[in-house]
């Protein structure tokens, strides 16, 4: 808008410069994923041709079928789906009441508690996982998806409290006041009025947790040593350790499969995720 009166040759040169600057940036971000795709579609012979065969001449899906059927990646994918989903739902369920209290109830120590939760979020998993590993061992929860899921939930709770607080802040209080006047209790108002109105915020919190859980490596790596229970992150780590030059195309297919679900969810629901990330940013 500021440039409308002087919009001429200078502006067009600036537009061209914008694209010229974006081009190498896009190449940097896109090339690794395209290379992975290229490798995963090649035969072993074409892998050895390197960059000269960027577009495979005999593209094949055999790598995917082989990894899925012979290397157990079907199971790993399913384990990841289960752990990520239950972890995300659990974190949102636990965080929601507290987020509501932080959004609506004015009580002493509220700002300090909220900052405390932010500080907790910065604690490295490594610090707490050493003792937690021992507790899980004593409770007999090592090697179980249940114990692993509990840790996924606890890892997601702090950031989820903040995301949901921001989502509840956006629900007009007037609507709740009407419910109060009608004699609804606070809990009932929360469930029947606030939660449905904050649905987009709840969904974006679930999705963000899903994506973070999908990437989770440290927790399952420490908790689960038997491969039948592994999520895909641990599986590709193990698979890459055993990979050789002649299995590069299989590793590429496995790696792409660990990326695709997160990528698809992200592209489809991008608006919600960007919204969740930026709402946190603006509020600081």
């Amino acid at each position: 808008m500021s440039g409308t009166m002087v919009r001429g040759r200078g502006a067009r040169i600036a537009d061209a410069a914008t694209y010229a600057a974006l081009l190498p940036i896009l190449a940097f971000f896109l090339a690794p994923i395209l290379w992975l795709l290229s490798l995963s579609l090649r035969t072993q012979r074409e892998v050895f041709l390197g960059a000269a065969r960027f577009i495979p001449q005999e593209p094949t899906l055999a790598n995917f079928t082989r990894v899925l059927t012979q290397s157990g990646f079907g199971t790993y994918l399913w384990n990841s789906v289960q752990l990520s989903t239950l972890g995300a739902l659990g974190a949102v369920a636990i965080a929601a009441p507290a987020a509501y209290a932080f959004s609506r109830i004015r009580f002493r120590g509220r700002p300090a508690l909220m900052m405390g939760i932010l500080a907790v979020q910065m604690v490295s998993g490594l610090v707490v996982l050493i003792p937690l590993y021992r507790y899980m061992d004593r409770l007999g929860l090592l090697e179980t998806h249940f114990g692993t899921m509990l840790l996924y939930i606890s890892a997601g709770v702090p950031v989820t409290v903040w995301l949901l607080k921001i989502a509840f802040d956006a629900v007009p209080e007037v609507l709740e006041e009407a419910a109060f006047i009608d004699g609804l209790g606070r809990a009932e108002t929360f469930v029947r009025i606030t939660l449905p109105l904050a649905a987009p915020g709840l969904v974006s919190a679930v999705i963000l947790n899903l994506i973070l859980n999908w990437s989770q490596f440290l927790i399952p790596f420490i908790m689960l040593s038997r491969d039948a229970k592994w999520p895909i992150s641990v599986a590709i780590h193990n698979f890459s350790g055993a990979a050789t030059a002649s299995t590069t195309q299989l590793l590429a297919a496995a790696c792409l499969m660990s990326i695709l679900p997160a990528l698809i969810v992200f592209v489809v629901l991008q608006r919600l995720i960007v919204g969740a990330l930026t709402s946190g940013a603006v509020k600081g």
Binding site: I259, L263, V265, F266
Partner: peptide
């Protein structure tokens, strides 16, 4: 898109 890729991958 690069951001949603798991760290291990």
């Amino acid at each position: 898109a690069a951001w949603v890729i798991p760290g291990i991958a």
